[in-house]
């Protein structure tokens, strides 16, 4: 069998007395949409941080596309095809939507020690950027300053920036967080169209979104993965019900 696109082994991360990631093993195959759910403080964002290269794990290994990337920093992982969105929207607010995406294209096409030619005049940057904006539904907003976009549009822009790097794996940290019902449904529909084209690992609170999108789901509690399976299997798992979906846990919002 082919090696999974992303393979995590024995991952551990401690913050003082808190074991935020506790012996996590996880395999994600190419083309799969994989969700990690869990109550607040379960360590989901810490996990994403370690996958993206912002946090160094204390122990364990992360293999991506057949390479050990445990020691690589975020920019290097991005260039290997690992793109991410942040839990709190992270864009370049004082650039136009188009420039935001063009920057992402630029980061992945050749060096940037070019001092003379205006980047905005390079079709090799702006043309793909426009196409990606079009595909996420922001085609008409290309020249708007990113700071002036609506919240939902900014989240779309973030996805557009990630897609513009032509990723093999998309890490999404709560992609529908803070969105209204209609907006989040639109985002879920859009992410659905990506299914199969790009491998997705998402962390999410919104159970509707997770159960609609994910092929497989892992449930994380106190830094540990307590169950992995399809939506049906996870829903039916006794331990999960007790720890998370059950009575003493906060209801999934």
């Amino acid at each position: 069998m082919a090696e999974p696109l992303l393979a995590i082994r024995g991952l551990r991360k401690r913050f003082g007395g808190l074991l935020a990631t506790d012996q996590v093993d996880l395999d994600v195959s190419e083309g799969e949409t994989y969700a990690v759910i869990g109550p607040n403080g379960a360590g989901k964002t810490t996990l994403i941080g370690q996958l993206a290269g912002d946090l160094r794990p204390d122990d364990g290994a992360i293999r991506f596309a057949g390479r050990d990337v445990t020691r690589l920093d975020a920019p290097l992982r991005s260039r290997l095809g690992l793109a991410r969105s942040f839990q709190i929207t992270s864009i370049f607010p004082d650039f136009s939507a188009l420039a935001n995406v063009a920057l992402a294209v630029q980061a992945h096409t050749g060096g940037s020690f070019r001092f003379w030619r205006p980047a905005a005049g390079e079709p090799s940057l702006t043309r793909p950027a426009r196409a990606v904006l079009e595909s996420v539904g922001l085609g008409g907003r290309a020249d708007v300053l990113a700071a002036n976009l609506a919240h939902g549009e900014q989240r779309q822009l973030e996805i557009a920036m990630a897609l513009a790097t032509k990723p093999r794996l998309l890490l999404l940290d709560e992609p529908v967080a803070g969105m209204g019902l209609e907006e989040s449904q639109r985002m879920v529909r859009f992410l659905g169209t990506l299914k199969g084209h790009v491998t997705i690992v998402l962390v999410e609170h919104d159970m509707d979104a997770v159960f609609t999108l994910a092929d497989r789901i892992s449930v994380m509690v106190y830094g540990r993965i307590i169950a992995t399976g399809t939506a049906e299997e996870v829903r039916g798992n006794e331990e999960v019900r007790r720890a998370y979906l059950g009575e003493d846990a906060p209801p999934p919002c």
Binding site: A52, D54, D73, A74, P75, S78, R79, A83, R84, F86, S90, I91, F92, P93, D94, F95, L103, A104, A107, H108, S112, M161, A162, A164, T165
Partner: peptide
């Protein structure tokens, strides 16, 4: 871009 949002700049590969 790094002035505007350095974590974002790193995340897209700079």
């Amino acid at each position: 871009a790094a002035r505007s949002n350095e974590p974002r700049a790193r995340a897209i590969g700079f």
